[in-house]
Design a protein around this nucleic acid. Sequence first.
RNA 1: CGGGGCGUAGCGUAGUGGCUAGCGCGUCUGCUUUGGGAGCAGAAGACCGUGGGUUCGAGUCCCUCCGCCCCGACCA
Length: 574
Amino acid sequence: MLRMSTLFLRTLRDDPSDAAVASHKLLVRAGYIRPIAAGIFSWLPLGVNVLRKVERVIREEMDKAGFQEVHFPALLPKDPYEKTNRWEDYGPALFRLQDRKGSDYLLGPTHEEMFTLMVKGEYSSYKDLPLSIYQIQTKYRDEARPRSGIIRGREFVMKDSYSFDLDDAGLEVSYGKHRDAYISTFDRLGLKYNIVSAMSGAMGGSKSEEFLAPCSTGEDTYVLCKKCGYAVNVEAMSTKVSAGETTEHPPIEVLDTPNTPTIESLVEVMNKKYSANIDASKTLKNVLLIADGNPISVLVPGDREVDLKRLEANLIGVKELRLFDDEDFAKRKDFVKGYVGPQDAKRLGVKLYADPRITIGSSWITGANVRDKHARNVVHGRDFQVDGFVEAAEVREGDACPKCDTPVIIDRAIEIGHIFQLGRKYAEALELTVLDSEGKSRVVTMGSYGIGVTRAVAAIAEQTYDEIGLVWPAEIAPAKVHIVATGKDDLPFTTAEKVALELEGKGIEVMLDDRREASPGVKFKDAELIGNPIILIFGKSLADGKVELRIRKSGEKSEVALAEVVSKVAALLN
RNA sequence: CGGGGCGUAGCGUAGUGGCUAGCGCGUCUGCUUUGGGAGCAGAAGACCGUGGGUUCGAGUCCCUCCGCCCCGACCA
């Protein structure tokens, strides 16, 4: 029983000044966590309580699916991570350290290497597969910018699983089992979520889906079609393209357009000076970038911005991408800022990538690569050719669903889970092979599956809180019932104690506010802030043999006869 | 890493270059009080983030560093 009189807990009346999101504010105020450094938190008894419950649900669902738990160190040697190149590739986000002898170590940001090596050390036959193992571990990533309290920390708890199969069909099965296990896990945790495809089909990459918990403070943006259920990360959204134009276009015409370096000014000049009657979507925006040191130009309709995240996710093979800056323009005087067009790409030595809306045969108004001049009737296929199409333009609410053409909605969410068909990358690098039925050596194919455990705590808080505090689902609340005893007489306290013990006897967790010195107001506020689902109040009405029962979530209040309290509570929890 | 904001007691905050750094919450003691963060009386608690500078005098002005938050870049 959690007794408020002795519980290591101090609630705060004010929001901490450095917290911006609700989960952060409330978890600190209600005494679940305390900040230690940027993106690093201590967990107090209430916080540990909730965290353990989330872990328990995860463990139960993993075990039910037949996955086995293992546990790796958080402190790891460099060597395996060198073999997979991640000692380098992970960059500054990797916490690196040395021991007294000067050997390199790291704090694990994720454990693909260790899992792969563990299986390699134990198994060598196809008969041992399939296998899925998992751990719940503290992970470390030196995030460039930790933020939003526990949503994006530098130290966090993650459940990560890995599946090992002989072939793609097996991987598909293991992936499906994880997907199902995640669905039951998140359902039990009371989370609302969407399963969203994380990679575009165009990439031809392996399968990857994210479990996104919608909430306004989320960092991920996703696209959802309410009609057909199409759901993708915004980076993976593919553009619905209407049929290409086939009409003949007049030849290119170069126009005088002094002082029109922006799309907005171009539209105005075209309409006023040339009576074109167009909007920005008829113009072609040429966004210059540096991709791994080389200039590229990305073409999007003038009414859309380039979404750098989308572009980067869809430009395969490019490691470093940034916009042209003033220095680049200074170096390349042949790129006329504000008047760039695709017609001279070859001469300028720039690779062209086009948004799919720039269909072959479409005609555009764009820069003439000469200061103060634009060109119209610039036709894709006739006047310029692109090196490839790429999803680069921003996605907007109301854009057409690529599957059913219905306008899509855009929402923000917290990524609470990610399942991913890894393939053979790690198995190859670390030489994880087994002998198949013909005695031949085969590289194992893997899947990787993560759940952000601490992040799930934050996501649940974000999805359920209200203006007076946290509102936990019963499954993970610190206690199912929060009992408040008020008054100066002993009766409410002794009665509350008795009922608390009875409830516990039925396996119902109880938090008992047995503080004699605290005023009723304080106890009510604390109960509401802490967020257990049922609140029982032993006070005034006890004289009539009644107890007040409140549902935290709905705020609903009722009087229950003392004799019926236990059965009533038990019924509510079923 | 770029831009912005902020560091004063456990938390929230006030503080024209000028006396002993103020207030609320919380904490401790005593009395009173017990259905909505009670009242009274008292108490403890602050290297005013750090180092330097300007000044007769710095919490306050200048510089350095450190830390925290927000936007962006980044985020298997």
